[in-house]
């Protein structure tokens, strides 16, 4: 379960009376269990796209469905992970991960079992009683992943999740995400501006153009996981994506 479908989705913002088209004619089918990366420069509307799938904003026209059910607002079947983690600072790690389950009304014993499972999944079983400020950035993002997965969403949304991390931590987290995704088999939509992140993680990369944001190309990544940057096929994909993205860069 977790088939996400966008049909002719457009988003027009009102900029002090002047309409600005952020996204136009986005039609996209993401299969159950597929890892999809949305790649584009800042200002291509990729975050707007994710916000609409999350239900925080509604499309100006077009429709978004998850397993044929229309998206009308935020809900647990589409959890989201932000760049700045958005953990609850007053709650310890266990309570953070349990939050969505509590909202769903899952009984305490069951809640505990699910939380323990997800804390082990992200490798933080020993940190259950700590508070967010006691953890490093990478660990905080692991908590956010555990929290988002604990409610058993159909689709996991990620908005530049590793952009705030240092290079080494980011690579480690990309490896972790691949491992977790292979274990959990969730549909994932990840927004990123990093070509390498898209190739390392995704089954398909959706390249967006700018002004307005449209789908420029959908590039399937057929490489085996874990992916190797020294693989010649990897280099070919990187070159292709770089050329697609390069056209969109602002003249400096």
């Amino acid at each position: 379960m977790g088939h996400l479908s966008l049909s002719a989705v457009s988003k027009i913002y009102d900029d002090h009376g002047a309409p600005v088209t952020a996204l136009s004619g986005i039609t996209l089918d993401i299969a159950d269990g597929e890892f999809c990366a949305i790649l584009g420069h800042s200002g291509c509307g990729k975050t707007s796209l994710l916000n609409m799938v999350a239900g925080f904003e509604s499309p100006t026209s077009g429709s978004i469905t998850v397993d044929r059910q229309a998206v009308t607002g935020p809900g647990w079947e589409r959890t989201i992970i932000f760049q700045d983690y958005a953990l609850f600072p007053w709650a310890n790690i266990r309570d953070n991960v349990a939050f969505g389950l509590e909202m769903k009304g899952v009984p305490p014993a069951e809640r505990r079992r699910i939380v323990d499972h997800h804390l082990s999944l992200v490798g933080l079983a020993a940190f259950a009683e700590r508070y967010p400020h006691q953890l490093s950035g990478g660990m905080k993002q692991r908590v956010a992943i555990a929290r988002a997965l604990a409610v058993q969403p159909r689709v996991l949304l990620m908005d530049e999740p590793f952009a705030a991390l240092d290079d080494q931590t980011r690579r480690a987290m990309q490896g972790e995400l691949t491992r977790i995704w292979q274990q959990e088999k969730k549909t994932v939509v990840l927004v990123t501006h990093s070509i390498d992140e898209a190739i390392l993680l995704a089954d398909t990369v959706v390249v967006l153009s700018r002004h307005p944001g449209r789908i420029k190309r959908i590039v399937p990544i057929g490489l085996d996981r874990p992916r190797d940057e020294d693989d010649p096929a990897y280099a070919v994909l990187r070159k292709e994506l770089r050329a697609l993205i390069h056209d969109e860069a602002d003249p400096i």
């Binding site: 239900g55 925080f56 607002g73 809900g75 989201i80 958005a86 939050f99 909202m103 769903k104 988002a148």
Partner: peptide
């Protein structure tokens, strides 16, 4: 972001206020 995260996990307005 905390409110959005809570909403995405299915919290109702009442739950968001209290929790």
């Amino acid at each position: 972001g905390l409110i959005e995260a809570a909403q995405a996990m299915g919290a109702t307005p009442r739950q968001i206020v209290a929790k």
